[in-house]
């Protein structure tokens, strides 16, 4: 018997350790569930970490109202199968309540507005730790993020003054009103995620696999035709074979022209690809530091 562990098992062990630390150190944690592969992975790892007990965290979905139908179907099925508790926060309600104003114009998006809905939810349910599926390889501001990321009473991130994280010791102490964001899969790359999902045989939403869809081209991205995205007079949608590399709000999730129809095809494609996965995310292209700016305000 050789005592070696492959990289996927090492990552799994680390993530499960983090999830169990959250259950032990916090009173009222929640998983932020977007319906994308990363939050599916986190949920799956949480099931593993606590089996045969139920996942000790509710799933929280910040719903922009601009969803792919497939995402909601998958979400509801998963929640039912795991016997998990689901809490939905609605950006539409935040807008209707006058807490935020809808962006205007062709590139209007509800990505930034999610922050207010999320912070309201944290206050309403008194969550002291929100577990997210962010990974450090996704984006340069996220490369600096801790596993246990401290947020002040306004939900803000202070990147220049983060707590040091040494060995496997995670400091979740805080004052009343503050909270933590927890990122158990920080050390996974996009390829690791897909390799693991394939190794474990986890069923994934159909949007990740190639399918026919009516899409149109705008600013370097292919966007899905949808009542949520007003099209310019010059834009024309056509049916193409596509898949999505990331799944988020429909208005800012770019499609990839791809014929990858199995997990193995996706691994091949990800291994060979030359563009980052958030390359198709209009929300990150707004400025060089748009992720850092959003995170400081309290974004995921």
């Amino acid at each position: 018997m050789s005592y070696t562990v492959n990289h996927l098992k090492a990552l799994e062990s680390e993530s499960i350790f983090i999830l169990r630390e959250v259950a032990a150190q916090f009173q009222n944690p929640a998983i932020l569930f977007s319906g994308g592969k990363d939050s599916i992975l986190v949920t799956y790892l949480a099931k593993k970490a606590f089996y045969p007990a139920a996942i000790p965290f509710p799933l929280v979905h910040v719903d922009t109202g601009h969803n792919f139908r497939e995402t909601l179907e998958y979400r509801d099925k998963l929640v039912e199968r795991l016997g998990a508790k689901l809490i939905v926060g609605s950006v539409q309600e935040t807008i209707d309540g006058g807490r935020v104003a809808e962006e205007k114009g062709y590139n209007a998006s509800r990505i930034r507005l999610q922050t207010t809905t999320l912070l309201d939810l944290i206050e309403k349910y008194r969550f002291d730790a929100c577990i997210g599926g962010a990974r450090r390889d996704e984006e340069k501001a996220r490369a600096k993020e801790r596993f246990f990321s401290h947020r002040d009473e306004f939900g803000q991130w202070d990147p220049k003054n983060q707590r040091p994280e040494l060995w496997n010791l995670f400091n979740g102490r805080m004052h009343m009103g503050e909270n933590f964001r927890i990122f158990p899969i920080s050390n996974w790359t996009e390829l690791d995620v897909w390799q693991y999902l394939a190794m474990e045989g986890i069923e994934m939403p159909s949007l990740y696999f190639s399918h026919k869809r009516r899409i149109f081209y705008r600013d370097g991205n292919w966007l899905a035709e949808s009542p949520n995205i007003p099209m310019k007079p010059t834009e024309r949608a056509e049916e193409m074979v596509v898949r999505f590399r990331t799944i988020g709000d429909i208005t800012s999730t770019g499609a990839t022209l791809s014929s990858a129809s199995t997990l193995d095809d996706i691994i091949q494609e990800v291994a060979a690809t030359r563009v980052t996965e958030r390359g198709g995310r209009a929300d990150d292209q707004r400025s060089e530091t748009s992720m850092e700016d959003r995170k400081k305000e309290g974004y995921f």
Binding site: H7, R136, D137, E139, K140, A141, R142, A143, K144, P159, K160, Q162, S186, N187, T189, L191, D192, E288, T289, E292
Partner: peptide, 26 residues
């Protein structure tokens, strides 16, 4: 150097984590 302050000043302040893999190791 991912943070605004780091890019402005051209220095590394905080630990940044980077990932790469070859067919042998991650």
């Amino acid at each position: 150097d991912g943070l605004k302050a780091e890019r402005e000043q051209g220095i590394t302040i905080d630990v940044a984590y980077r990932y790469f893999s070859t067919p042998k190791r991650k």
